[in-house]
Nucleic acid binder design. Structure first.
Ligand SMILES: [Mn+2]
Ligand SMILES: [Mn+2]
Ligand SMILES: [Zn+2]
Ligand SMILES: [Zn+2]
Lengths: 137, 137
DNA sequence: AAAGTAAGTGCAATGGAAGTGCATTTGTTA
DNA sequence: TAACAAATGCACTTCCATTGCACTTACTTT
């Protein structure tokens, strides 16, 4: 089990106070978050810094981006050992129409999708919408 | 085979010059289009009119919206007899990473997706990204 | 330890897309 | 033709994403 500092170093990301805080914030969330969510959690920090921190994390495969169809880009920490590989790490996302939260279903890999002749599939975005477990009980 | 006028009437949409033109524009496209695409095709018309026409078509199940992950909402004509029903009319969309075009694969219905206990699936958005048939040959 | 360099942060501004209020025009119906 | 309702055009707004530039902080080298 490595510390956050070790993780960042291993990915060639400089350790700064802001980055540690943002990492911890993401780590304790089970749901995916928007930039505004992060902004609200760190009112003293500038929006741009948060934005660029997330982009850095994204480039280094620490965070992945989620398009859940709400029109607002969302982000979540990758799993341990994730390399954002299309074959092994691509998973399903669930958006709740009731509480409006989106979560990663990292255990649910995306099934093989057939495409017509001549088409080459490189990547798949799969979002299921409905009622989440918290809202359905 | 009904005329466009008949189709619009059957859906309780008033026939106007603009609506006929936009319908024809959509009908001759094989790919899905953005509002900007329509705007460029009808430079004399106001953006708002085009916007509201599309929204009207959407409400009446003549057009469906596509979120292909580019961040820009796209639209396409529905198939003959489509009622935008989740069970029967929901289909796959393909986005080409090369030419940046997106098309409806109306023959490719969306497979049943398993979700964890407690979750209820109501709707699915499935976008495959890769190389389209025109670009791959 | 001090200087020098590269990276990170904050502020201000921009741009694109989506959406709305209201006045004007057009079409439908009595 | 008069009256009414819907469609269109214009102006404006909001929201999110993104960038340029100045300043600050962290790392490296002497
Ligand atoms: Mn995820
Ligand atoms: Mn479609
Ligand atoms: Zn919920
Ligand atoms: Zn293509």
């Amino acid at each position: 089990m490595q510390t956050i500092e070790q993780l960042l170093e291993s990915k060639d990301i400089r350790i700064t106070a802001m980055r540690l805080l943002i990492y911890k914030f993401l780590a304790e969330k089970e749901i995916v978050v928007t930039l505004s969510d992060i902004e609200n959690a760190f009112e003293k920090a500038d929006r741009t810094t948060l934005y660029r921190t997330i982009k850095t994390f994204e480039e280094k495969d620490i965070v992945h981006q989620i398009d859940d169809g709400t029109g607002i880009t969302k982000y979540a920490l990758c799993e341990q050992g994730c390399s954002c590989d299309i074959k092994t790490d691509l998973h399903l996302h669930f958006h709740c129409n009731n509480c409006n939260e989106t979560i990663c279903l990292t255990d649910h890999k995306i099934p093989q999708i057939k495409v017509p002749d001549g088409f080459v599939s490189e990547n798949v975005n799969l979002v299921v919408k409905g009622i989440c477990d918290k809202c359905s009980r």
